[in-house]
Write a protein that binds this DNA or RNA. Structure first.
Lengths: 314, 314
DNA sequence: AGGTTTCATGCAACCGGTTACATGAAACCG
DNA sequence: CGGTTTCATGTAACCGGTTGCATGAAACCT
């Protein structure tokens, strides 16, 4: 009755529903789940290593809100899965099976986590963020890292800079690699020479950006612009430039990536490639629900980025 | 058997467990929940108004990790409850009943939210953060806002400041009111006169701090120190001081509250009253589990704060 | 040894839904 | 009008655990 309302005639249905409301009837989700093997719950795996302080994705909250809102509009709830105490690699898969979760979303730090593999290889619909995962029922959502990086470099070129350096993400992270690719592609497209000494590896954090910038400033022919593959690194770089007695953007123009809250707040304002944070959540929700309901694996979703120009590029 | 292992003898138990592991037996949580009416899940209500961008509690992630970790150690999972589409005031309560949730934690913005009232008045164990809630099975976790504020003022006095102003939280928020109380109490304890014009209301955000500071700078006898009831406001105030051509800490010493990540990053470093973020999560978890298992309502938990001294107070 | 108590084990009902199937009434056919 | 098809409604089994009770064996008593 509550699943196929059309099988009973309208008048009877009306009576039932009004009575149900009157006496406060509430369907029991556990009974429904037990009978149908569908829980209308999606698992969220985040921070797989609970000993570490958790990956400080700077806009986790916004992703989470988007995800939660989009799921709830379709009648799904979000269950946060904890790493189980035993630490066996299939602990997530077991938790999913025990709870009859209909699908899973994972947010890791952009590196492959072995404890997710059993899940990915199972029949459980999985959506990962920022990184493809190998498995029959998996897809992922990511930003257009290559395109965003290209736009950043193009912007620096457009304001007259020619010695454009980059501070990359750590080797082995997917977003880091893609943003580097975009940097190189755009240099080539603009006809600028690729100077290997202008590519310095960072760690996505403030200190890594600071260190990398100092290295760049010590070059004989120092750059007049830097594209940092993350805002925190860009802010670290900004500090290093200031400490060296140079000015942003006069001496060095700076572009970051992410558009974290701080980017707008740090003087003189950080130009950056904004990611669609809420879009991550809604796209992930849409993908997992498609898998659940249609039984088809949607193609990876590449979200567009947008350049936000602030004081650090004039 | 899986609930009372001691009722069968050790050898048999061993056999069962090993066989269970071998054939990959997994207990079905829905069946268990249906039979026992206990789901081993705790609901999380956060961001009750899903039309707004969500309350940007600056350390939501840390609270969440603490909560999730502490709950999972006791065998509980966290279900994020979405505001239901119908918007009726008892929608949360209905969701809790449908899922047989064992308890609920809510993180709101420090103001009473009417949609939480039916839940609070029910038999469901509820723990709220930063704010007491009226109901038979409710308790709360908060920081020692009064004590923290007093320590901040005492510190400013200790470094020689005597004209100590405060930028408060918005009227009507509990933490805001308590921090103001601490400010006033400590002034009295130190024998400093309370000058009403040195108390300016803010909004917990950057812009409010900025505006409030400008008002303070226009006073005839301007303060030589400011205690802001939140770090974001303190940073806004810092900016206003700098813009006015004055120096922190030489002309104005500044203390904030919260210890958000940014506090350490903004030059010259913000002295602030640090809250125990992870402690919020673990304390909330402990409280809700006590209510569930012991059937007793624990007393409100007041977490100690600690003063972190940085450049803004010399 | 016969009768009673103690305890382990097996069995069946139950939790609250879903679903496949049986039943019976109404609508249709020649 | 008898026989078949169509459709609505009622019934019972099932999902996979938990729990209270009945059963029967072992241990105890006089």
């Amino acid at each position: 009755m509550f699943n196929n309302p059309e099988v009973v005639n309208a008048q009877t249905r009306e009576l039932i529903l009004s009575t149900a409301a009157r006496i406060g009837y509430l369907p029991n989700e556990s009974a429904r789940t037990l009978a149908t093997k569908r829980s209308h719950m999606v698992g969220l795996i985040w921070d797989t290593d609970h000993r570490r302080p958790g990956w400080r994705h700077p806009f986790f909250q916004e992703i989470l809100i988007g995800l939660k809102t989009a799921l709830s509009e379709r009648g799904y709830h979000l269950l946060m899965l904890a790493t189980s105490e035993d630490g066996t690699p299939d602990s997530f898969l077991r938790a999913v099976r025990r709870h009859n979760l209909d699908g899973v979303v994972f947010i890791d730090n952009g590196r492959a986590d072995p404890s997710l593999q059993p899940l990915a290889e199972s029949e459980v619909p999985c959506v990962s963020l920022d990184r493809p995962v190998r498995g029959p029922w998996t897809t992922y959502v990511t930003s257009d890292n290559v395109g965003g990086a290209r736009e950043a470099v193009r912007h620096l070129h457009a304001i007259g800079r020619r010695a454009i350096a980059t501070i990359t993400g750590p080797a082995g992270t997917r977003p880091g690699a893609e943003r580097l690719r975009g940097y190189l592609d755009e240099l080539a497209a603009l006809g600028l020479a690729h100077r290997p000494e202008l590519v310095v590896e960072g760690d996505f954090y403030l200190s890594g950006g600071h260190t990398a910038m100092r290295a760049l400033l010590e070059l004989e022919e120092r750059p007049d612009a830097v594209f940092a593959a993350g805002d925190e690194m860009a802010i670290g770089a900004l500090r290093a430039v200031t400490e060296a007695g140079l000015k942003v953007p006069e001496d060095i123009a700076l572009v970051g990536f992410d558009d974290i809250e701080l980017a707008a707040l740090v003087p003189p304002g950080l130009t950056t490639v904004a990611q669609d944070k809420a879009g991550f959540g809604t796209a992930a929700a849409a993908a997992v629900i498609t898998m659940i309901n249609e039984g088809a694996t949607p193609a990876p979703r590449i979200l567009p980025t947008s350049l936000v120009v602030r004081g650090s590029t004039g």
